[in-house]
Each structure stands twice: as structure tokens, then as C-alpha cells.
Nucleic acid binder design. Structure first.
Ligand SMILES: [Mn+2]
Ligand SMILES: [Mn+2]
Ligand SMILES: [Zn+2]
Ligand SMILES: [Zn+2]
Lengths: 143, 143
DNA sequence: CATCTAATTTGTAATGATTATCATCTAGGA
DNA sequence: TCCTAGATGATAATCATTACAAATTAGATG
């Protein structure tokens, strides 16, 4: 028996979600790849194993997984939503050339000083989106 | 003669853009409202004065205005693009209740410490998106 | 001022991401 | 085993945006 599979089943059960083959496959894909997948990427990724799965099911599932906190939906620029297995509070580096995403962390939150009209704004969360050129693309264009 | 109108004409000319009635109206709307308008809001805003204007023209114009740096396109969450007259580098507070946007500034950029796989990433720009509850909504729900 | 041309406008079609709908199916509890 | 709330999947609908092409026009030129 596949220990990884047992793992995603346990994750679904702990989260109080019904365990379906589709949900197992989608969560397994996310666990295996570990990156920041789009619905389309997930859909393509599970095709070989689940050729009948509907793209609706992928949308439904990632919505549920995000609701129970197993994954996190992130929006980057104007692109499609991405789904992140890393649910710790963290931030992202985005390469302008190839679009690759890296996680990074900030230990001490920056001091936001708010304008008068925003005084009293209750800060609940924040996300830093850094744009630039990734090492690989720098190497490629630098040469 | 309207001094404001002369102003937007000058802005367009200085930017090297052709001056058309539609562009004047759109830029004037942005100058007057000064906020973070969507294409739809701009379109509705100029309707009384330009009932014939096409929504395509709004898309075209904001794209051009952004290209020459007169405005800045911003993406917030999964919503439509917003267009910002404030072209200084700055960041945003977003209210989870009503969606209102506030600008804010950070004097000293936070120290991003990157993970090993992102070492050498060339940072070009960054944007902080703060989620929370605005003063008005706090007052409304607090009472 | 008259003419010319490339840029602009506009209506419409096409695209891409996402949500809505609903008939069918099934996981999991009784 | 049965039952039912919840899940799936096919499809339609919606929303934001881009693509296209014909008609119009800003602004340069003489
Ligand atoms: Mn991440
Ligand atoms: Mn702003
Ligand atoms: Zn890159
Ligand atoms: Zn609010």
C-alpha cells in the first residue's frame, strides 16, 4: 500500500471532508508537486490517472481544500488562481521572465504607517509580492 | 475655459499621446475621482458626458496611459484590474468588507531573506497588499 | 486651409477563467 | 443494506479581457 496515499486520506478525514477518489488524486498531485499549481495544471496532472475527471471537480475540490485550510489560494498579477500547499504565512517572489514562484518569509513585519484617512484600519493579514528576475533567467539572458 | 481640462490635455501631450475627446474624458475622470477605478467604473463615469464611448476605448486608453506612466495598473485579489493615478511606489490596504482601497508607504524596505533556491533573484519591485477591516466598516459592525 | 496617413474609435466576435445548474452517482452513517 | 446529504461531471452562463476590422479623425505637411 502507498504510504503517501494513506497520508492524503488522513488529511481529508482530519479536515472533515469526504474522501473521494478525485479528492485523493488532486490532493496527492498537490503534495507530490508541492508548488503553486493552477486548476489547469492540476487537471492536466491527474488526467493520466483520472481521464474522466471534470474540470468542475477540480474547481470544487480546491475550493473545499482551501476552505478547510489544507491549501491556500493565491492571486498573482492577472493570471489564474494558484493553489499553494504551503499554508504558513509567507510571501512570494515572481520572475517576470518565466513566471516561476518562490516562497520567502519575513520574521519581523514591516511597520506600516497609515495615512490619516486609514487610521484605525484593522490589519488582519498581508502579502508581499516581489517582482524580478530569477537566477535561471538571469543566467540565460546574461550569457 | 476649464483649467482642469487644459491640465489633462497637457498631460497627454507631454506623454506623447494623441489628444482625443475620449482620452481627455477618461483621464479627467481619473484625475477627478483620484481613486482606484476599474474599467467598468470609468466607463460608467464618463457615460453622462460620452454616451457613445465604447468599453473597448476605455480598455485601450488605460493601457496606453499605463504604458506612458500616467497611471498604474494594479491587481487586487481576483477582482478586475484597477487604475491608479498615484504612480509613486506605494502599497495598499484593502477592506475585506467593502473593498475600499487605501494607499500607504513604507520608508525602509523590509529585509527579504531568500531561500537557497532563490539566491541571486534580482529584485526589481515589490508590492504589499494588506487585508483587514476599514475604520468605517469597523464602526458599522462594532455598533 | 486642404490633403494625407497612421493612429484611434467602435461594435462585435473570440478567448480564458470561473461560477451556476442540475441530473446522476456515491460516501459514509444509521 | 439503505438512505440521504453531499459530490461529480457535462454543460451553460457569466465576467473580464483581448482580437479584429471597418469607419473615423488627430495632427503633420505643404
Ligand atoms: Mn507559496
Ligand atoms: Mn494606490
Ligand atoms: Zn525566470
Ligand atoms: Zn470597509
Amino acid at each position: 500500500m502507498d504510504p503517501g496515499k494513506l497520508n492524503v486520506v488522513a488529511m481529508l478525514k482530519q479536515a472533515g471532508l469526504r474522501v473521494t477518489p478525485q479528492r485523493e488524486a488532486i490532493l496527492q498531485y498537490l503534495v507530490d508537486t508541492g508548488g503553486h499549481a493552477t486548476v489547469e495544471e492540476i487537471y492536466q496532472g491527474v488526467q493520466p490517472c483520472f481521464p474522466h475527471m471534470s474540470v468542475s471537480t477540480v474547481y470544487n475540490t480546491v475550493k473545499h481544500l482551501a476552505q478547510v485550510g489544507l491549501i491556500k489560494e493565491i492571486h498573482v498579477g492577472d493570471g489564474p488562481s494558484r493553489f499553494d500547499m504551503n499554508v504558513r504565512p509567507h510571501h512570494h517572489l515572481i520572475c517576470r521572465k518565466c513566471g516561476i514562484l518562490f516562497d520567502f518569509y519575513i520574521d519581523e513585519p514591516p511597520r506600516f504607517h497609515l495615512p490619516p484617512e486609514a487610521q484605525g484600519f484593522q490589519i488582519e493579514d498581508y502579502h508581499v509580492e516581489v517582482q524580478g528576475i530569477c537566477p535561471a533567467c538571469r543566467a540565460a539572458s546574461g550569457e
